[in-house]
Design a protein around this nucleic acid. Structure first.
Lengths: 189, 189
DNA sequence: GTCTATACATCGATAGAC
DNA sequence: GTCTATCGATGTATAGAC
């Protein structure tokens, strides 16, 4: 890795550290520069603007998520694979709420992922769709529902009891409940 | 209503207007003062701080929600009543996303509702619990699940398609699915 | 590439006259 | 209660020397 790219990576890492400490919106360029041992204007040698920094973080977060999803060995059984996929996704979110906030919520005014960063987000989405499809769920409405249910459990867990499992422990049961119903409905039609 | 309280109410109303335009975090005292035809420091005759303004908005929002929930005539059938209650709640949220953000999410750094404002939020919660209990769901885990599911649908609707019904149209079906399952489980034990 | 210095804006909050 | 004036902090971004 060239020295410049290594530096960029180090800056992004420090930015994540600040985001974990003060929230994703609480990352300031002054604090970031201090964290990496530079002065604030020097950051502009690596990022054109603060939104460009967020964009690099967005891409980095999605890349890490893809990598983490790649590492997990999914069971052959589609249902078990779906549960494992969701569990991995949830673990990724709970591991770093600020990262989840940047990747999946829209709390930074003016920030929109650049096209090249967004393809990474679409890659994540594509993998989710694949594992959902393979369990036999193909209708858009059913996919929307199951994704929204999982997100609902995850957000409740994140905002009310991060680190616990009060909501997340129901994940597999809810997935079974919905998938059984969806398959039954498609069998009948 | 005394003149002073009328003025406070007018300021809060204008604050909601700004929140709808620029997000709940985007409300500034300068803009708010301009909106009500005053200078920024004059606002301090009505609110001790910006957080005190947010607290007044929080109380106001909950009061409006309670009022809206009071107006709706719930069917005698508990299941139908539950659906109607959720529908009303969702309508309230979709009607003003910024208001939902202040009342039910924690996006304002440093803001915590005062005790007197928080009792209003608890009143809302108590009404939700009542209508859920009356359908036969009493275990905390089941309540958590159904609330998280509804919230998941609502947040997906809010952030991806406000004004539409792509997610919300599945609300009643999901409620039936979960309630049927919960009742079946409690029947068996 | 990194620095110093600074521009420029926004914001919440206070002082004190009227 | 409302105003003018201003403080003080924070923040992004730019200019220009080295």
């Amino acid at each position: 890795m060239p020295r410049r790219e290594a530096k960029v990576a180090a800056i992004v890492d420090s930015a994540w550290k600040l985001a974990r400490e003060h929230g994703i919106a609480g990352v300031s360029l002054h604090a970031l520069a201090r964290e990496v041992g530079m002065r604030q204007p020097s950051l502009y040698a690596y990022f054109d603007s603060k939104l460009a920094l967020y964009d690099a973080m967005f891409a980095d977060g999605n890349r890490r998520l893809i990598q983490q999803l790649d590492l997990v060995k999914l069971p052959r059984d589609p249902r078990a694979a779906l549960k494992k996929f969701f569990a991995e996704f949830v673990a990724f979110a709970l591991e770093d709420p600020a990262r989840y906030e940047l990747l999946f919520e829209r709390h930074i005014p003016g920030f929109t992922p650049s096209p090249t960063s967004y393809v990474l987000a679409e890659e994540v989405l594509a993998r989710a769709y694949k594992v959902i499809n393979e369990v036999g769920i193909t209708k858009q409405g059913d996919i929307d529902c199951i994704v929204a249910m999982v997100a609902g459990l995850m957000e409740a867990q994140l905002s009310n009891d991060p680190g616990g499992n009060r909501w997340i422990r129901h994940l597999n049961r809810l997935v079974d409940l919905y998938v059984d119903d969806a398959l039954e409905r498609s069998r009948q039609s």
